[in-house]
Every structure is written in C-alpha cells, then in structure tokens.
Amino acid sequence: MEAHAIKNVCIYGAGALGGSIAVKLAMGLGERVQISVVARGAHLESIRAQGLRVWEAGASSPVTARITATDDARELPPQDLVITGLKGHQLAAAASGIAALLHPGTRVMMILNGIPWWYFHRDRQSSHAETQFEELDPGSVLWRQLGPERVIGCVAYQGAEVINPGSIQLSNNGRYVLGEPSDEHTADIAAISALLMEAGVNNTISPNIRNEIWNKLLGNAAFNPISALTRALMTDIMFDPGLSKMVAQVMTEVRSVGEALGAKFALSIAERVEQSKAIGPVRTSMLQDLLAGKSLEITPLVGMVVSLGRLTKVPTPTSETILALVTQLDRETQRSGAGTP
C-alpha cells in the first residue's frame, strides 16, 4: 500500500480521539481523501448540523470540518482505512458495522487503551501466541469478522474530551504510536503513518507495539479506576500520599505481569510516578465516562492485568481489589442510570 492509494478513510467512533483525528484528516488532506465518521446520538446530530469542532490545546477558537457522518456504516462505501475510536469494551458490539466497511485490502487502525483483543496475534515475546480472551472478544466476533491480520495497533498520548455534542477539547499536543502485531515495518503501516503525518497527526512507528501498550498501561491501570472511585483529578491523585502509594503499587503489579510476558519498560516505577506529577489537573477517560453515566472501560485496563497475572502466575492483589470496587461502581452507575449524584 502507498499513501496516495488511500482514498477512503472512515473513523468509526468519532468521540474525543477519533473525532479530533477526523478533523485533522479532513482539513489536512482536502478532497484527495474522502473522510467519513460513524457516530451516534446528539454528537452525530451536531456534526451533521454544524460540523465537527476541535479546540486545539490553548486555542481560543475551534477548527471546524464538515464531514460525512452516519450512525449506519452500511451507508458508506468500502474503505481503504478504518480508524476505530471506540473503547475496548465497545468494540464487539460494533464488529458487524466495522466489517461492513471492509474490502480485501482494508487495514483497521485501532486506538485502544489497555490490553487489546488481538494482543497475542503473531506474538513472539511470550509462549501464548494466538491466545484469545473471551472477556475482550465475546464469542470471538472481532477475531472472526475483522481478523487480527487487518489490525494496526495504536497507542495514543493525546488528552481529549468531548465538551459538548460535536465539540472536542484537546489538552496537549499529542502523539500516536503505531505498530503491526508482527512488529514488522510493512508497506501498509508506512503508508498509514505518512498519511497521518501529512494531515498533521503526529505519529511514530514502533518496532515493538506490545512494549508501548504495557508502558501506557502502567498509568491507565492505576489512574483510570482510582479517579473513577474517588472522582479525583490527576493532580489530586498524585499529591495525595495514600493515593500516590496505591498508584505505585498498581504500576508495580502491571510491570511484573508485563515482564512475565516479555515486555520491556522504559522507566522505573519511581520515575514513572514522578513523571505523572507533571500531567496536571486532567480528568481521566474513565472519570469522564463515569460522570456522563456511561459504562466503564474496566476489562482492558484492570481486568486483564488480573487475568494475565493468573496466566503468568504473578500476584496482583491491589489490582484485584480495585477491579472488584470499580466493577461494583460501574454496576451501580448503570443501575441508577446516571454517573452523578
């Protein structure tokens, strides 16, 4: 695949991250590439009526793009590239919609936090290649309908929030790390990276995407559930002695599980904790979802740390406790139908 051969790109799930990428692609690539989004509800209606609006970090006014938008992927033609902005626990329900966009050469770039459903496809770091997990991919619908061979892994370092329907606020000048599950530098991933760079989406290609996944998970497995349980911002968590100690405990467990599966980590736990103090007063994605009354992304971020700990015989007591608490929080939130008192 060459970058100029990518003519149709669909962002499936145009929330905070997906929507911001859609705007950059639409504004940066012009008419050479047809950009579309799959969204729903008030967000979709606002995109149709007023365009999709993104406030860059520090900007006083938004960038607005008029983009083809639908809630039914079957209305769109086959795509050369699909970029998913859905969270891990939302993907299985969207499998048939994503599958409707595919032609034989379509690649699917999945922006995901935590352990992705395709994690062990072509994995050479551990002895668990091609292992599947029911909790990540119920009934193997993603594995069967999309196929892990289509996946381009993507780890995002971009703070973003949907502040109103059709409106997205970015909190930093982010970056994305791409990687093939095989860790090969293929023509496809080179073309996709080049297309994103042309549109102003800062990205790099990793020679080991699993290491990137684990390094990001160090923070996600700690900050997301702790913020949801306490409703605290990142600064509040990191400057509270008890909470910051718990963060370090979770990070230590995540690192031990990752290392048991062959992952390498860039920083020590002490360095990672210190680095986190500079993030600022940010609401994590799980806290955003809790306050909006949405279901929480628990399994990829916390549940899989526990499950993979059992697989590798690595103890994860703090993560197990947090998993039980945040699972019950999610249960009660969904029962009451609202994330706020």
Rank of each mutant, 00 (worst) to 15 (best):
L229E: 10
L178C: 04
A232P: 00
V247Y: 04
A190T: 13
T204S: 14
Q132L: 14
S206N: 06
E212P: 06
E253R: 04
V250Q: 03
T252V: 12
Q145H: 13
L196C: 11
D137E: 07
V201K: 00
S140H: 13
D236N: 13
P241Y: 05
H185W: 06
Y176T: 09
G242S: 10
E184S: 14
T252P: 11
V155I: 08
M234T: 15
I205R: 01
I226P: 00
Y176K: 07
M238E: 02
V254L: 06
I168H: 09
L195I: 08
M251Q: 08
G153L: 04
E149I: 11
S171G: 10
V250P: 01
S206Q: 05
A160F: 09
R231S: 13
S206V: 01
Y157T: 12
N224R: 11
T235I: 09
I205P: 00
M234S: 14
V250F: 05
T186W: 05
M246S: 14
A199Q: 00
K245F: 15
E212R: 10
G219E: 04
S171P: 00
N220A: 11
N211H: 08
S140D: 13
P181K: 01
I168N: 10
A187T: 13
L196D: 05
T131G: 08
A190I: 14
S206C: 06
I189Y: 00
P165D: 14
P138H: 15
P148I: 05
D137R: 05
E134I: 10
A199K: 00
F133P: 02
E149H: 14
P181F: 01
E184W: 09
A194C: 13
N220W: 04
N202E: 15
M246G: 12
V151R: 02
I226R: 02
F133G: 07
V155C: 06
L136K: 04
G219I: 06
V141N: 06
A187F: 11
V250Y: 01
I192H: 02
H185A: 13
T252C: 13
G174F: 03
E135I: 14
R210C: 03
S171Y: 04
P241I: 07
P241V: 07
A194V: 11
V177S: 05
V141R: 08
I152H: 00
N208D: 12
N215T: 00
R231N: 12
